[in-house]
Amino acid sequence: MSKASLSMRPALQGYVLLAPALLVYLLFAVYPMIDVIRMSFASWNGLSAESRFVGIDNYRAVLTQDPVFWGALWNTLWWTALAVVIPNLISFGLALALNQNVPGRSSLRVVFYLPVIIASIAVATIWKWMYDPFFGLFNSLLTSWGLSDWIVDWLGDRKIALWSVFAAHVWQSVGFSMVLFLAGLQSVSLTLIEAARIDGAGRWAVFRHVTLPALTPTITIVFVLSLINSLKAFDIVYGMTGGGPAQSTQMLAMWAYTQSMQLGDFGRGAAISVILLLITLAVVVPYMRWMFRNPEDAR
């Protein structure tokens, strides 16, 4: 190989190195994305051999006739907004606290990070069991504290089901952003902090003028990562409620899956996928433009 490669032009060598990753990426990620757009203009039940071009029928059906779509869209947006804010605020607070000189820092860090490495489907199972209305943790705690009136059907009441699922999501996701923030805090210069202290700056001033500016790139990354992650909320909802009760916790990604893979309407499923893709792009494209303009900030 080394003999042959010597005679190979450098650029060609580069393409050889690039090829395997590029090939698998194009075949199994990029092509399906193009395919889903094509499918969204066709009618196909997954059983028959061919599909039929139907124009924008699928989109019209999804937008005007689907009794679940708008609820799922609303849930997805709502979930995304909350998932970007709430867990990350907790993570940020935890990271700041764990960056202080307190005993047992590393054990505490492990405790908060542990849920991250657990499969979402296991998190769903754990929390579903804790929410069990008759024998689960929450309702037995409420009973033993004499608060039986507070007992609710955590996953069966549409007013709170999505909140219940969200609580599990917070438990699971706080640790991930926390580690990123902790890593970002390593880059905050200690000398700068000390200098500020000596200059008589208070806690808040140090935080505001030294810590926060240094963390800006990290905050951006955390923001984008959790935004993307929450748009694809699937496992945890699938495992905990399956979209119920009465589709009230349905999400776009799962509804697209349900339409295609369970109801066999691949056209409508694809139309929902494309809509979710467009929403994702609305986030991704501005971020990418920003990143390629300021490559230093982005890393």
Partner: peptide
């Protein structure tokens, strides 16, 4: 028997 929306058939059988 309430609540019933959050449980499945096998849990109902247990009850």
């Amino acid at each position: 028997l309430k609540p019933f929306m959050g449980i499945d058939n096998s849990q109902a059988f247990k009850l």
